[in-house]
Design a protein around this nucleic acid. Structure first.
Lengths: 309, 309
DNA sequence: CTGAAAGCGCTAACAG
DNA sequence: CTGTTAGCGCTTTCAG
């Protein structure tokens, strides 16, 4: 049936007969059980409504399909408990590997995952997984530097969870840009919340209430930036004259003519594709896998939420 | 191990021992093979980057997880061949059921699916599946009626694939609204393309070039409306004074202060939840299942791309 | 209440 | 080249 080298007449007959018999479908489950290959990978992301993750997911799904794999997609809503549950489920389903963007610190994952896995936006110091990401520090740097070059001086950092890996990296880049330009770091200008629009809105409100002299905001991601823009719009703050805003990710909505958000581009789709190829390599290499650390380059996209220079 | 009524001492000991032994994980595959219950459903949607589908997917994923099911998500990019391939894969994986938004006419699906399935936005005349959708005809009607009430008279219909079920329904509602208000139907004003932003842009361009007197556009979905708005913006057309635009879906970006798109709301998340519950019911009921046809109500959301009345 | 045995649908490793 | 057999890791059934 699985056409290896074989007969010619007999086989063909059988095939025809089988095909007839009310649509025979080979039972993958049985096959997986005996070959110990599920041809399935697990994918865990925090938020499918954020186009950033949606596009990564798209890249993952497509690449997996091309490589003959199916993907089990799980979304955690940034809930660590759910994340744990999903990992357990996936392992019981005998996925061959997992691609995960952790809700929190990835260090804790080490214990709970016994399957090969690659982390999206995480480090792999001392650990047994590969990871793929964009150079977040550089992204934070070029975004902030651009604000400075546009003449903004009191620049706030409005980010996601304080100790999230990507947030820390971007923040580091932000600080470096400030330092290089002799702008004193003001810790009060560093705010953190969630990686969503609502949080962007609230944080902008708080920040500008507490420090009315803020004239620039570097956002942890585009979705937050949208929230910041929302607040600014509502508060009658003129963008980009009174306030410069830069985001991170370059989601498709950032380029809408009504938005024109200056932002730091990430190759999202590619990140997804690379994640599965890296994972598949790791799986193939088995125990003696060489851990990979894939870092893509971000890119500054100048649009209209920052002044022209 | 699966704690039924049993021992007390002996069992506990075993459990402890097993737990110790380098993390024992029950093999779901084997269990599924013998119980013939995979606790898995398949989900096939055309486009995960469209927030409409992303939110439906979210509803599906969450509800499935709550009900103890895992979901295999497949995205087709509106490619019928891929859709077929995914259906085959899912059946070989022995999913218990499939939730699908078909790329094309769902009539053709009948032959290829041998598993219980529910269709998102499709009819179930003479067929063996349930379906869940919003009242698309009504949606088309209230959207168009609103344009008329705002004083627009030359209203174009810019939709997706001509013979897609949801498109046909919405178009029907559009025609009914026109007829009820004694506005002559002009077939030249009915355009169709793809359900994406680019197509909205192109269609708006064509429509307005061919018929400069158009003063209103009813769009097949919000993503297309965004494209229409993009073109209008670029062509210097004043919205809503010179041109009224209404969308369909109410994706989150429609409510952004920079967009404020008037649109027809769909309970997307709920649609997803209901789809899985309907499917699970159908699975449970087995052969004697009573087919369901679940129709939710759309709602007009007036924002700023149509004139105030 | 517990242990042993059968079998889910397939593949792999054998002989014929 | 074919047919047979064993067994993947579990659940279920049936004795002990």
């Amino acid at each position: 049936m699985s056409n290896k080298e074989g007969v010619s007449k007999e086989t063909r007959k059988k095939v025809l007969k089988e095909a007839k018999r009310i649509g025979y479908r080979p039972n993958q489950l049985a096959r997986e059980l005996v070959t110990k290959q599920s041809n399935t990978i697990g994918v865990i992301i925090p938020d499918i409504l954020n186009p950033f993750f949606a596009e990564i997911a798209k890249g993952i799904l497509e690449e997996a399909s091309i490589k003959g794999y199916t993907a089990l997609l799980c979304v955690t809503n940034w809930d660590v408990q759910l994340e744990k549950k999903y990992i357990k489920n996936l392992e019981e389903k005998r996925v061959e590997g997992i691609i995960i963007k952790p809700c929190e610190d990835e260090q804790k994952l080490e214990d709970s995952i016994n399957t090969p896995y690659v982390i999206l936006e995480g480090n792999n110091v001392n650990s047994a997984h590969s990871c793929v990401e964009v150079d977040n520090e550089k992204g934070g740097y070029i975004g902030t530097k651009h604000l400075i070059e546009c003449g903004y001086r009191k620049i706030a950092y409005v980010g996601g969870k304080k100790y999230a890996y990507s947030n820390e990296k971007r923040l580091k880049g932000y600080k470096r840009a400030l330092a290089e330009n002799n702008i004193d770091l003001d810790e009060n200008l560093i705010l953190s919340g969630e990686f969503d629009s609502k949080s962007g809105y609230e944080l902008a409100k708080t920040a500008l209430a507490d420090n009315p002299h803020i004239d620039g905001i570097f956002c942890g991601n585009d979705v937050m930036a949208l929230g910041v823009l929302h607040y600014a719009n509502q508060a009658g703050i003129n963008i980009p004259e009174e306030l410069g805003v830069v985001g991170f990710d370059d989601i498709s909505y950032a380029s809408l003519p009504q938005i024109e958000l200056t932002t730091v581009y990430q190759p999202k789709y590619n990140l997804g594709k690379l994640a599965v190829n890296t994972l598949l390599d790791d799986i193939k290499e088995g125990k003696e896998k060489t851990l990979k650390r894939i870092i893509l380059q971000p890119d500054l996209i100048k649009r209209k939420t920052t002044r022209k220079i």
